[in-house]
């Protein structure tokens, strides 16, 4: 087990290197000049040239790559061109809203998806089942930027219950924080809820057929009680696993949702950095996203081994 984990961790390094190098190469063919973006539409060429020089943008690619690598080895991601601070500091500021957003979205996905899956399974093939499953697919089928604006129109403009955007840190004002995060989390979470709902339903149906459930039923227990007490525990494992893998998608979805709701998270940071050509930040965020994704996957795999004794990682 420990050897397996160690090997997996070691394998992360070449993967990170691939992800980093791909980004590095990609960024250097992107047209556009961060200096020109910073100076605006009527800046003179001399002005731009002066700023380029200060920012060290004129160095050739071949000189930058090895230096980037050696800095990366020391976990130094460089300095943001635009924000005028180390990339690690910028990421540290931004990671909190994104983690909060994804966490709340996951909570919503689980809170909506798992009960929906259980109820659907218990009402298998009946109208409620069909309706719930159609609802589950709907979530995945709607474009999230559109869902987001519909939520704003309903809850902010018409009902005036929640703010339409902006961010309040939890430590500043917990209640306002939750109010400002509710709509973004809903927009992201609802599009994800279909995944656990479908999984829980399918697995639950499987489990309900198992012998130990039949035994429990024979003992006279209610079907609902059985489902919740016995079957759900068995069914949760795959659902949790899938949500672990879904983290990559959640981060991607966060990009769109943060843009609509104006949350100062990693998604906006990277989208705006692409627009401003703030190369060190893009590079850094990609590395962090990749690391989060890979570590979560590793964690999920390890958890799987731990929770499901049938699985043994021999080879690979």
């Amino acid at each position: 087990m420990i050897a397996y984990v160690l090997r997996r961790v070691l394998l992360l390094l070449p993967i990170m290197l691939v992800a980093g190098s791909v980004t590095f190469a990609l960024l250097h063919v992107i047209p556009g000049d961060p200096a020109a973006v910073m100076l605006g539409p009527e800046a003179t060429p001399e002005q731009v040239a002066a700023l380029r020089e200060r920012l060290g943008l004129d160095e050739p690619l071949l000189a930058q790559y090895p230096r980037w690598l050696s800095r990366l080895a020391r976990l130094d991601l460089g300095t943001s061109i635009f924000l005028d601070k180390p990339v690690t500091a910028a990421i540290r500021e931004r990671i909190v809203p994104t983690l909060q957003l994804t966490l709340y979205a996951l909570l919503i996905a689980v809170a909506v998806g798992i009960p929906a899956g259980v109820v659907a399974a218990l009402h298998q093939d009946r109208l409620l089942d069909r309706a719930l499953m159609l609802f589950a697919i709907s979530g995945t089928a709607i474009a999230d930027f559109f869902l987001a604006i519909l939520l704003i129109l309903l809850f902010s403009v018409t009902l005036r219950w929640l703010p339409s955007g902006g961010y309040t840190p939890f430590s500043d004002h917990p209640l306002q924080h939750l109010a400002s995060m509710t709509l973004p989390a809903l927009a992201l979470g609802l599009s994800l809820a279909g995944l656990p709902a479908r999984l829980v339903r399918a697995t639950l149906l499987d489990v309900l057929r198992e012998d130990f459930i039949r035994t429990a039923a024979a003992k006279g227990l209610m079907r609902e009680t059985i489902a919740v007490q016995h079957a759900l525990r068995n069914a949760l494992l795959p659902a949790v696993t899938v949500l672990g893998y879904a983290l990559g998608d959640l981060l991607g979805g966060a990009v769109v949702v943060e843009t609509v709701f104006g949350l100062p998270g990693m998604g906006q940071l990277v989208v705006n950095s692409i627009a401003r050509r703030d190369f060190p930040v893009i590079q850094g965020v990609v590395m962090v996203f990749a690391a989060i994704y890979l570590l979560t996957n590793l964690l999920v795999d390890v958890l799987y081994v731990y929770l499901d004794p049938r699985v043994r990682y021999a080879g690979r």
Partner: peptide
Amino acid sequence: LDGIMAFPGVLLAIAIVVS
């Protein structure tokens, strides 16, 4: 492939389209 997979898909796609 794992390296490519580790990118959030939307970001990878934007970067490619812009490049």
